[in-house]
Design a protein around this nucleic acid. Structure first.
Length: 576
DNA sequence: GCCGTTTTCGGCCCGACTGTTTTCAGTCG
């Protein structure tokens, strides 16, 4: 039975929640949650690794006991002890933990005093105004809870990064103009380059006191103030986005930026490392006893605990601290490293801009070459190219290339991989092109075996160069294909076929974890915009962020290479 | 439940803010 890392992580999370609701040992609870995080962040399916002889005990935070439970779960799909716990704790209580300011203690209090066992019975208790009678609650907590339940506040509402970016930029420029504020940075998951953002974290630096709560109240996008203290304030914007603002003096700016950037798991790891050296790390600095020895810059914080600077995108506690310790951190790819873009559309199919305009826009974006990859005919909805329309486009590209300077257009196509792994255009047509980008656009729900075989069969076609948006996921809309990625990466490396990291904000596919696994298998990555208009090249920065989160360096990326080398790498030395 | 050139037992990151208290527990990041 196939068991995914996510299945195991979800079971560990549930175990942690149910133990917390049982008031179990907090460190034991934390051990389960840490295990969930570690498993979720693994670049390869654990089941396959364990089958190949890997001992889960070797994972950080996994000891003999959890390693045993992992083995049972991989065999049976059952986590030992979980079924029993489900019987003793009403499982509906878990959904209450998602409410703001409601944790295990308050859920337990509601359960014991009022018999609350899920969201529905909590609503009834709120309607009867009985919550205020519970010890530790009062009229204020009762009305907060009412609002939270009414607003379905338990839902995890995360914004796509470019959307959050607009709100961040506006508030950033507002805060920079507040008197007394010297410096403002956006921290949190936004700074780590995550594909979605749950809230915005701002770090404000000033030499004297500043009333941040008042400043937030004066911002015209603020809906309500959640809390306001001398160093920390939170507000909800009219968009529904929560912002947290933290104020520190200059001497603490670096350590505060590090602390506020996270991730939480990364911070905990760094603080443990500091403890081993007899140091204490908090948001105000690095301390030996009472004395501050670092903290004005992030680099000084890392240095104090014996590490080189670690880029924010890597700070997920996925091995970056260990790698930094032995000076094995990758030198991450930068937007400037990109010399071309191998996935671009035009008016000929579902793009909005002509060939010539796309060429000009690409040149303005600093690119030396782009591949024109309109859709092949299979997608009727976008008026896909048939052989004769494609031939006309190729002529047009030839004449444009003859007149253009500073930018070269490659002849390409985005061709569908059909359900059986064959392509939507014949080889005699594809053979005339510089680059063939193949992609899955339907039959997303095939079994893992059939989906994997479908991709591998496409890889075996003679002219396929790149697999576009390999997992075909849409963030929060469509899950990733169920695919045996280890087989895909191995075959991609052998052929070779290059794997795309599609920069569209709703795709960002391959994701950070898969792209890391791909490069570890020596597969080259094509960081592509999939631009459908002249503005589309701007999405490349999001693709680069995702690549950096996947430990990708310049050498791992196909299109950081000059055109001559890319042409050589795209040329197939075999024929059908 | 994990972990260890101070430890195989006794620790486990650390501080801010709120609402409830009358000095603090709970939650959050």
């Amino acid at each position: 039975m196939p068991v995914h890392n996510e299945d195991l992580a979800a079971a560990f999370d549930e175990m942690g929640d149910l133990l917390a609701l049982s008031a179990d040992n907090p460190f034991r609870i934390n051990a389960y949650r840490r295990a969930a995080r570690v498993v979720r962040g693994l670049p390869e399916e654990l089941q396959a690794r364990v089958a190949a002889g890997f001992d889960p005990d070797d994972l950080p935070g996994i000891g003999a006991d959890l390693a045993g439970k992992i083995r049972v779960f991989l065999d049976t799909g059952e986590l030992p002890g979980l079924a029993r716990l489900r019987k003793s704790v009403p499982t509906g209580l878990r959904e209450l933990l998602a409410l703001p300011n409601v944790g295990p203690s308050r859920v337990r209090a509601l359960h014991e005093a009022l018999g609350v066992r899920d969201l529905k019975s909590l609503r009834a208790a709120l309607a009867a105004h009985r919550v205020r009678e519970v010890a530790g609650f009062g009229p204020k907590r009762e009305s907060q809870l009412e609002q939270a339940v009414a607003a379905h506040a338990g839902h995890d509402r995360r914004l796509l990064r470019p959307v959050a970016s607009q709100y961040a930029a506006a508030l950033l420029s507002y805060l920079r103009n507040v008197p007394g504020i010297d410096q403002v940075e956006v921290a949190g998951s936004y700074r780590r380059g995550r594909e979605t953002v749950g809230d915005l974290d701002f770090l404000v630096c000033s030499r004297g006191p500043v009333d941040i709560g008042k400043a937030l109240l004066g911002y015209d996008e603020t809906a309500s103030l959640l809390s306001a203290g001398p160093t920390k304030s939170s507000a909800v914007l009219k968009s529904g986005l929560q912002v947290d603002v933290r104020l520190v003096p200059p001497a603490s700016f670096g350590s505060a930026l590090h602390y506020f950037t996270g991730s939480k798991a990364h911070n905990i790891h760094v603080r443990r490392l500091a403890m081993e050296r007899g140091l204490k790390v908090n948001e105000y600095g690095v301390f030996r006893g009472e004395r501050q020895i670092a903290g004005t810059t992030e680099a000084s914080v890392f240095k104090a605990v014996g590490l080189p600077y670690i880029e924010p995108e890597l700070r997920e506690d996925r091995g970056e601290i260990e790698a930094a310790g032995v000076r094995r951190l990758p030198s991450l790819v930068k937007l400037d490293d990109l010399k071309g873009d191998l996935h671009v559309h035009t008016l000929a199919t579902d793009g909005t801009t002509t060939l010539a305009e796309m060429a000009a826009a690409a040149k303005r974006a600093g690119l030396d070459y782009i591949a024109i990859t309109d859709h092949a005919q299979h997608i009727g909805a976008v008026h896909g190219l048939d052989a004769s329309r494609l031939a006309r486009q190729l002529d047009e590209i030839d004449s444009l290339n003859a007149s253009l300077t500073g930018i070269t257009l490659l002849k390409g196509i985005e061709v569908d991989i059909l359900e059986d792994g064959t392509l939507a255009l014949p080889d005699r047509v594809l053979g005339k092109l510089d680059i063939v980008v193949a992609a899955v656009h339907d039959h997303f729900g095939l079994t893992r075996r059939r989906q994997t075989d479908r991709l591998l069969r496409a890889f075996d076609r003679p002219f396929v160069s790149v697999l576009a948006h390999p997992a075909a996921r849409l963030i929060d809309e469509r899950p990733a294909l169920d695919v045996a990625w280890n087989r895909v990466f191995r075959r991609a490396q052998e052929r070779p076929v290059y794997l795309e990291l599609n920069s569209q904000p709703t795709r960002l596919d391959l994701d950070d974890i898969l792209v890391r696994e791909a490069i570890e298998n020596n597969v080259l990555i094509s960081v592509a915009s999939d631009a459908h208009g002249a503005q589309g090249f701007a999405f490349l920065d999001g693709g680069i962020l995702q690549a950096r989160r996947g430990w990708v360096s310049k050498a791992d990326v196909l299109n950081t290479r000059p055109l001559r080398e890319v042409r050589r790498l795209l040329r197939k030395t075999f024929l059908a």
